[in-house]
Every structure is written in structure tokens, then in C-alpha cells.
Amino acid sequence: MIIRFCINGRDTELDVRGDERAVDILRERLGLTGTKEGCGTGECGACAILVDGRARLSCLTLAAQLDGRDLTTIEGLGSPEAPHPLQQSFAERGAVQCGFCTPGMVVAAADLLARDPHPGREAIREALSGNLCRCTGYSRILDAVHKVDER
């Protein structure tokens, strides 16, 4: 089936199979490998992307469900040359270690900040509780979101 969507500001059309997952078309067909896969069952959050502004698990989303939607992946939030404030804050505050969970973490944080621009630390903890990180112990990630406005 043909699906059309806007991804990172660009209108895109793809022919997909009914059982294809969103994460696979992003990574393998659109070359957007910033979106990671860590479990395939919604337990780790590494595959989070924004769909109509809300963070979703792209491993538990069918490609077909993207039809007509507006998507933002980690690449759409910013690049090393023009990073999103969250990406900058993650990098500066030591919130990145191996970095494999980081894109999903940043996407989940972007969803939070869109709804609550100045969340408290506990609200951030809760908002990121679906994104597993095995390297950090989380506190620098919480700092990065909490202090995103402080430079």
C-alpha cells in the first residue's frame, strides 16, 4: 500500500507492506538510523519518534499507521551543526555515554517539554521512565532536561 506522510518537514511517499514496522522503514528505507531498536517490544524506548508531536514507539507502530501523519525523528530535531537545545544540553551535561538510548530519550524529553516547558525533576523522571538506559544511572539525563534553558 502507498502511504504519504511528512517526515522532518519533507513530504514523503512510500509503498509499504501491511506488516512492515515504522522503525524498519525509517532505518532501512529512509536511512534515518538515529532511531534505534533495542527490544522490539516497547520495553526500552530507543525507537521513540514524534508522531503528530507525540512520542511513539516506532517498533510497535505499523508503517501503515504513519499515513497522513507528521513525523519528527531525532534527525529532525537537530543536527550536530544545528542542534536542538535538548541535544546540546544532553551533550554538555554528560547525559550521553554509549548513546544508543539517547535519541529515544531526547525524543521523549521533547514530547514532555512541548506540553510542560518547565517540568520539575520528578516529572522528568516519570516522563522518561519508558526509556531504558544501561550506562548512566539517569541523573545526568534528568539534569540535561531540567536545565535545558540554562546555558
Binding site: A55, D111, E126, G130
Partner: peptide, 12 residues
């Protein structure tokens, strides 16, 4: 509901 899954799960 707040204790179900995670925010990412609850969004879906």
C-alpha cells in the same frame, strides 16, 4: 493508569 507501562506505552 499512571502506573501502567510507561509514558511511551500510554501514548499509544
Amino acid at each position: 493508569v499512571r502506573q501502567l507501562g510507561s509514558p511511551l506505552v500510554r501514548n499509544q
